[in-house]
Amino acid sequence: MGLVVEIRNLVYQYSPHLPNALGGISFNVLPNTCCAILGPTGAGKSTILQAISGILRSHHRQGKAEGVIRIGDVIHQPIPDKSQFPNVGYVLQEPEVHISGLFETVAEEITFTLRTLDVPPTLHADRVRRITDALGLGHLLHRNPTHLSGGETQRVALATILVAEPPILLLDEPTTSLDIHGQMRLYEYLRKIKQTTTLLIAETNIDLALFVADYLVVLEGGQIVFNGTKAEFIQRIADFSSILAATEWHDILKSIANPRTRAEKRLASVLAK
């Protein structure tokens, strides 16, 4: 089951001579729901995910944080000081860095996560098979994980985290290396795991975010400019279109008005709901 994530008055500064990356933000993500964090590059999307995952504290020694992060029943003040895995799974923007380069097959690469968690070896094969079946990776199990296509790498990276069955999953722009079919397939899967997992997705691709998100948080310059449900977001779309990539908004509005491709028709039906 998913866990709640609560962020209260979070302020973060990477170093004393840089402006605040996050300027006192607050929002909640309820268990088994999906929150999409939208905003242009540099808005603070990744900083939020890194703060929740625990790596912000351990990798930026000079960073300064204020506020509170609650993960399930555990309150971290101001932010977690070490990796919260396996409670929090985090898939980075560049999926290829999740491929450790230590192993010769995809199966070994995914099993490595189970080894770090000291899962009994007798359970390894079953857990790996379950996740690879769910992500459609069965045919890649014996392939070298460093010789895969962008989409395959993305799915293997996701599998290396999801095999741990984290109750909270953070995804940083998960669709950057995927084609349109790959993007839709990934988001279909995310909708499925949302039943048991709390999702936080940093996205610049608004149409995809709307496909899976229940709540949306829009950031600009480390400040929240919108925090609400999908319906509220669609209602207020015009208000803050200027802060997001104009072409994407143009595409969305065009798609809503006149859906042509399968993806656009699907998007229009999602938005109509």
């Binding site: 990477y14 170093s15 001579h17 990356a21 990744s46």
Partner: peptide, 13 residues
């Protein structure tokens, strides 16, 4: 000095 970044240091996010 840790407070002296070089000119190309950008925001890490």
């Amino acid at each position: 000095a840790l407070s002296e970044p070089s000119h190309d240091d950008r925001h890490p996010n």
